[in-house]
């Protein structure tokens, strides 16, 4: 049995050094995926690097007109941040569909992202939001789009020694609105069979000027469906636009049959959820306009 060490560094530099010095070391923030994987024997990291004692890694900050969410910020804390919840309700609700209250009091969006599950609830919302992340590593810090992190189920683009420091959400303007919806068999406690995030901008005439639609659990990674957004842009959300949206979404789906859903069901749900999530985002965009 390999002995795992536990470290709780207090600076980003210390954390980078610990992670870089130990290729199988894993960062720990909420632990709701990591500890389960360790208990099941799926992974046996040489060290666990607890990020929660690093100053600035927990909590939500305003950065200009946008937001920076520390990597160790639990999902429930996002709900408690009134400005964030008002600006990015879709992101906040996505993060607060993960697991139970007990889980969300620990789980973080950064962990949800770096666990690299195609069904991660917060990721479609973050991708739709065009969020970025700040990554620290041996070569300093870099900022990349959220969509660039997951590479395949369980695999990220992070290099050895790198970890996610914060997630950044852009500023919101008039006519912006976002939303996230998922399909699960129960009302809570399930992994998304399909997830859909939408982020829209609507002008004063009710015309769509920008739209980003992202889907979860329909491909090896969360996918941004550019054609789905394009189907809406320029429209007033008429039937033709929704029909084009549905077609674009179905075309972007390459799901698998597994214990949580069939290919056919996932494709059908992706189209249903995309329409519903756009309608919710539209209501919010209209309310903001």
């Amino acid at each position: 049995m390999t002995a795992t060490a536990y470290h709780a560094p207090e600076t980003i530099e210390q954390a980078v050094a610990l992670l870089a010095g130990n290729p199988s070391a894993r960062p720990l923030s909420g632990g709701t995926d990591l500890i389960v994987q360790m208990r099941s024997g799926r992974i046996a990291p040489a060290a666990v690097i607890d990020l929660k004692r690093i100053a600035g890694l927990s909590g939500v900050r305003r950065v200009g007109d946008g937001f920076a969410i520390g990597a160790a910020t639990p999902c429930t804390a996002l709900k408690d941040h009134a400005e964030l919840a008002a600006a990015w309700p879709g992101v906040v609700e996505a993060a607060n569909l993960i697991g139970s209250v007990q889980v969300r009091n620990r789980a973080t969006m950064a962990g949800n992202l770096c666990n690299a599950s195609p069904a991660a609830d917060s990721v479609p919302a973050l991708v739709a939001a065009n969020a970025t992340c700040l990554i620290a590593g041996p070569d300093g810090q870099r900022e990349v789009p959220v969509a660039a992190i997951p590479q395949a189920p369980g695999r990220t683009s992070l290099a050895p020694g790198e970890f996610l420091v914060e997630i950044r959400l852009p500023a919101r303007g008039v006519g912006d609105g976002d939303a996230y919806l998922r399909s699960i068999p129960r009302t809570e406690m399930d992994i998304a069979v399909v997830g859909a995030g939408a982020n829209l901008t609507v002008d004063a005439e009710g015309r769509c000027t920008a739209a980003r639609i992202a889907l979860g659990a329909v491909a090896p990674t969360v996918v941004l469906v550019a054609d789905a957004g394009a189907a809406l842009v320029g429209s007033r959300f008429d039937d033709a636009a929704f029909a084009a949206l549905a077609e674009a979404v179905k075309a972007a789906c390459h799901p698998i049959d597994d214990k949580r859903g069939t290919i056919a069901y996932r494709k059908a749900m992706a189209a249903v959820l995309a329409r519903r999530v756009v309608l919710t985002a539209l209501k919010r965009a209209g309310a903001a306009a």
Binding site: Y6, G30, G31, P74, Q102
Partner: peptide
């Protein structure tokens, strides 16, 4: 904050 104690390392309780 209520949590599942099976998903917390004992060391984190320091």
């Amino acid at each position: 904050q209520m949590v599942c104690s099976c998903l917390v390392l004992a060391a984190e309780a320091q």
